[in-house]
Design a protein around this nucleic acid. Sequence first.
DNA 1: GTTCCCATGTAACCCGTTACATGATTTT
DNA 2: AAAATCATGTAACGGGTTACATGGGAAC
Lengths: 187, 187
Amino acid sequence: MITTRATFPETTYAVLGLVDKVPGSSGYDLVAIADRSFAHFWPISQTLLYRELNRLAELGWVTAQRIDEGRSPTKWIYHTTPSGQAVLVEWLTKPAERISTFRSGFLLRFFFAHRILPETVSSLLTDYRAELTAQRDDFAALVDKLAHQSAPAARIGRLAALHGLRTAEARLQWADEAETELQQPTP
Amino acid sequence: MITTRATFPETTYAVLGLVDKVPGSSGYDLVAIADRSFAHFWPISQTLLYRELNRLAELGWVTAQRIDEGRSPTKWIYHTTPSGQAVLVEWLTKPAERISTFRSGFLLRFFFAHRILPETVSSLLTDYRAELTAQRDDFAALVDKLAHQSAPAARIGRLAALHGLRTAEARLQWADEAETELQQPTP
DNA sequence: GTTCCCATGTAACCCGTTACATGATTTT
DNA sequence: AAAATCATGTAACGGGTTACATGGGAAC
């Protein structure tokens, strides 16, 4: 029994979009693809992705086709249906409202740093900078890799990666700014 | 009965830190202060903040003092205990690991934009730019406001706001970059 | 012959959210 | 007299997580 709902979480559409983009993939494939692609700005766990696939199939937005290769468990591959595609386009067109989230464990600690010694604040910044550097290098490598691919999807992917790269770069600069500022005595 | 737990969510420490930073505040006060301060990088709802205050009191990390003003409901004000302060310092010192999260509804849609017309992608970017501009202006105003205050807490707050400002600026530049790039034909 | 990869799932938990309730006091 | 502010809470839900289970096939 399918209960009609007013809205679905963004993740539902994320998985729908992925099935649409990479049709004929299994859940296992999609997990791997998601991890390499949109997980950078929309993380999703394996369990949840499987749950969303079932929901999408129940809604009739994707078809689940059984592939019998004699192995266990049975492999299933997915395709978007016309109604699923319509829903996807509608979702893409409608504005995004307030669904973006940002939580920073670093900034949270930094904000309460009055409690701790200047050296500790400095080490907090060092850790953060290390994390950002790793992020920057990862994104830079991804941008570079996708720049050499000609598929239209690679273009979008490259720009998405560039978003991460630019963000990491700006925050690294901020870390420098913050460190020099904190070294100066209070006026 | 207090059950001992291995770990607590970051939000627990966020509230602990806030009580420590603004001692003698009521839950109502703390909600307002949180919304104006660390909610930018660690959002928290009123219900959750109250729940965490109760947890902190049960753990003995804060004291809850009843203020009887004859009104209803009774007002309670909070102070960190020595053990609570020790826990806070320990938390601040320990590295942050993988607790930061980032989810972007815009990037998610952008990533699946192959389905839609170029004009729609462009309008997606326009909406995003508007959101970023608002963010940038908010952070810029906050940075400016805090620059004129001399309290040590204002300095940290200003730097935290600057983090948001730099991020928004970088992403606005990215939006320009992306738009010009997408206007060029595929090679 | 053990370890990695394919492939799908169950169970349990809990953080965080939204909506709502209540009532006094202060402001308009 | 109405609206906003002060002040604390209950109820219900669900999205997302981690840990675990299962078992065949491929690779080393």
